[in-house]
Nucleic acid binder design. Structure first.
Lengths: 206, 206
DNA sequence: ATACGGTTTAACCAAACAGTTAAATCAAAA
DNA sequence: TTTTGATTTAACTGTTTGGTTAAACCGTAT
């Protein structure tokens, strides 16, 4: 049972469900286990969320927003692109480090049931103009001779791939590279600078 | 039912089980579905593989070897490191493209039950000398002024992260970047050159 | 005091699922 | 022709699981 802040039942359920769904996925998560972790009983669990599907849908939606929300600052400010990259990698790496299972959870569930993701896409494309602003900014900095021409989609993918992968595959990475927890932490700390340099190098004019 | 090559029952089972375990994971896979896809019945399935666990263990071991086997050529030849990188990215991207679910399957199951992976690690470290040869080669090329000093672990992770991620998260990527199947294929084709350039740039002296 | 909503208890149901069993079938080897 | 091993059929067991139900409990606001 996780009851840090004297939460009410609904919060306790959401926190427990979030943790278990993220770690075990829809199929691996059991309603009884969620109830146990929330410190309540199964009857009350179904009293608040009628079914596993309804509860899952809620958790998945929240998780998706949490992950997507980390991108927002890329659009809002008007600091230079290279600064954005530096700050993004720093913050995003910390965020993923504190939410190790989040990206894989989203990826897995979207792979297995793409429908659940279609609705959420609509929400994303409300921010179409924000995205266009970023693209315009990149275009301008390219014309100004600061950035070289590049495909923002590719660079974006590279950045999040390099950020997410070591955490998503943490036990595998630790095993194969033969690291203990401290060595892994050190390895991650070094990564920030390395990844930042790689991304910066692949977009700025030298 | 998948029966391309007039396989015997055991092969049919292994192929079906592989496909279903990779796509749905241990928890999502059902023995009945595996039997159906293999074109046999549940009784025979248990006749060949006594339990779901035994069958899974077999599939997981094979999958792990398949994935790890793709790395072997990095050690065996003595072509220059930069050449290895170019060839590896080319081949590895093709391989992952044809085995979209393989990496995520391994990562997920190792995350959820790290024990299953401990035994397999032993097999890897028989190849310790192969690995040391590669590290030695890198060291020599660095001293020869061809490569700059870098952490091979970091570069290796970057390489496979960038290779694997777009395929592992394919439906997510297609949705977010608003691509159809053809556009995705084109996007992947362009990636090879981009990723190769990035990795080469981050290891060679300019 | 009582009425009410949140919460517990405990038993229960129906479906899904892994795994078993016994008898029947069938093809090919002996 | 008989034997053997692979395969099917179909019923069955035991367990897990999602979900329900009804009665009781408990604190709090009226």
């Amino acid at each position: 049972m996780t009851d840090l802040k004297n939460e009410n039942a609904e919060e306790k359920i959401l926190n427990a469900a979030n943790e278990i769904f993220e770690k075990k996925g829809y199929d691996g998560a059991k309603m009884q286990e969620i109830a146990d972790k929330a410190g309540i009983n199964k009857a009350l669990l179904h009293y608040y969320f009628r079914s596993k599907d309804k509860l899952f849908e809620m958790i998945f939606g929240l998780a998706f927003k949490k992950l997507a929300g980390e991108l927002e600052f890329l659009f809002d400010t008007d600091i230079p692109v290279t600064e954005k990259v530096k700050i993004f990698i720093d913050k995003h790496t910390d965020f993923i480090g504190m939410n190790r299972h989040l990206p894989l959870f989203i990826i897995n569930e979207v792979n297995r049931r793409p429908e659940i993701f279609v609705k959420l896409l609509a929400g994303i494309y409300e921010k179409d103009d924000h995205l266009n602003m970023l693209l315009k900014q990149i275009d301008e900095e390219t014309k100004a001779g600061i950035l070289k021409p590049f495909d923002p989609r590719q660079i974006f993918l590279n950045m999040i791939a390099m950020n997410i992968f070591p955490f998503a595959a943490k036990p595998l990475v630790k095993g194969i590279l033969n690291m203990n927890e401290d060595e892994f932490k050190e390895f991650i700390k070094e990564r920030k600078a390395i990844v930042t340099e790689i991304i910066i190098n692949s977009i700025v004019v030298k």
